[in-house]
Simulated assay, not measured.
Amino acid sequence: MTAIRSNVADYREAARRFLPRFAFAYLEGGAENEITLRRNRAAFEALAFEPRVLRDVSTLDTRTTLAGQAAAWPAVVGPTGINGLFRRAAEEALARAAQKAGLPFALSTASTSLLEDVRNVTEGDLWLQLYVQQDRRIAENLMARARAAKFSTLMLTVDTPVLGQRDDYARTGFAMPVRWTPALLWDLATHPRWLAAVGIHGQPRLVNLSRSARLGAGIEDRTGTRTHRMDLTLNWRDVAWLRRHWQGRILLKGIQGASDARLAFAHDVDGVVLSNHGGRQLDGARSPLDLLGEVVADAPRGAEVFVDGGIRRGSDIAKAVALGARGVLLGRAPLYGLAAAGEAGVTDVLAMLHKELQTCMRLLGCPDLSALTFDLLTAHGAAAAREAAAA
């Protein structure tokens, strides 16, 4: 009998049961002591609602625009890497589910599906998340391919010159290429459903990097490109280099302070994503949600501010929008659905979050997104937003 899953947490538990320990640790884990990982979630929990009653909420409108494109609600299925660990053709499944939900899908440079294959399965809005390697011709080729495939938006990740220290990798034996140990073999043997659906097909491949680098397609070849060979010279002047190669909108993902947000807008980007990489990079960083009010207050007219990290309920999306976010990026939540039940699981997770957002808006007395304002929230984050707006 199929278990009833009523929320994202239920899908997380189903994903945990399905995945080998090393794969779930890769999905779920954070950097070092996971202070930042916990802080992301705690920031949402610290905000309390102050609803308005006796408001007409007989009709409800969650529609918005994200990076200039229409979206059914204020969320993006965000970029996540090596998703082939969870299901085959993972990015195709994520992209189709995003289109059905009326949302953009952001494809990671570290995807295990070709961007052209993703475009072939969806007519939805696609964004390219970009890592820049020492050989910048790789990034230039990725951008050219994405333009040809009609991707609308480029999202440069700026918080990953090197990988953060992730202790769970050592604890569970996660490594690419795989290092075969008795513990890993036992991990695989005790997860036969994953072996039959995923593991039997071999290691996932970072095929987009491989194609653009014109090198071997094995993940063992390309992991070095993503980490040790990342371009450590990348700096603010390189936004102009991006503009020469990308005519669409450009967002910077991984902004972790108001001063860097101001610098981003001074360099003429179209928007920023406040993000600490889901707590996977620098442990001890602030929660993006706690930065949101200050950054929004300083943003120039027309610039868009997105936020990610710790979003597990539709009410979390309402809180982010009330603090001024254009929208949120969903990372782990869709992946729980993907691992637990493939594309159907992603579709269900997105439908749950949208329904929860709608319920929350009605209970707050908000018939549309413009009614979601910071005066509906109480706590330090909302207080900071009020002060910034009054300044």
Rank of each mutant, 00 (worst) to 15 (best):
56 D>H: 11
56 D>I: 15
57 V>L: 07
57 V>S: 05
58 S>V: 06
60 L>Q: 04
60 L>E: 02
60 L>Y: 06
63 R>H: 10
64 T>Q: 08
64 T>H: 09
66 L>F: 07
67 A>S: 13
72 A>Q: 02
73 W>D: 07
73 W>Y: 13
74 P>E: 00
75 A>V: 07
76 V>Q: 10
77 V>Q: 01
78 G>F: 06
79 P>G: 11
79 P>R: 07
80 T>Y: 00
82 I>M: 15
82 I>W: 14
86 F>A: 08
86 F>K: 06
87 R>K: 14
90 A>Q: 03
90 A>I: 05
91 E>I: 01
91 E>W: 04
98 A>E: 08
98 A>Q: 10
100 K>C: 09
101 A>W: 00
104 P>M: 05
106 A>W: 08
107 L>P: 15
109 T>D: 14
109 T>F: 14
110 A>H: 04
110 A>T: 03
112 T>K: 13
113 S>K: 10
113 S>F: 09
113 S>G: 10
113 S>R: 09
113 S>L: 07
116 E>F: 09
117 D>S: 11
118 V>N: 02
118 V>D: 02
119 R>I: 05
119 R>W: 09
123 E>P: 09
123 E>A: 15
126 L>M: 09
127 W>Y: 08
130 L>P: 01
130 L>V: 07
132 V>T: 05
134 Q>M: 12
134 Q>V: 11
135 D>A: 09
136 R>G: 12
137 R>Q: 14
137 R>E: 14
141 N>E: 14
141 N>Q: 12
142 L>R: 03
142 L>Y: 06
142 L>Q: 06
143 M>Y: 07
144 A>W: 06
145 R>P: 06
145 R>E: 13
146 A>G: 02
148 A>F: 14
148 A>S: 14
149 A>R: 12
150 K>A: 12
151 F>Q: 02
151 F>M: 05
151 F>G: 00
152 S>E: 15
153 T>N: 02
153 T>V: 03
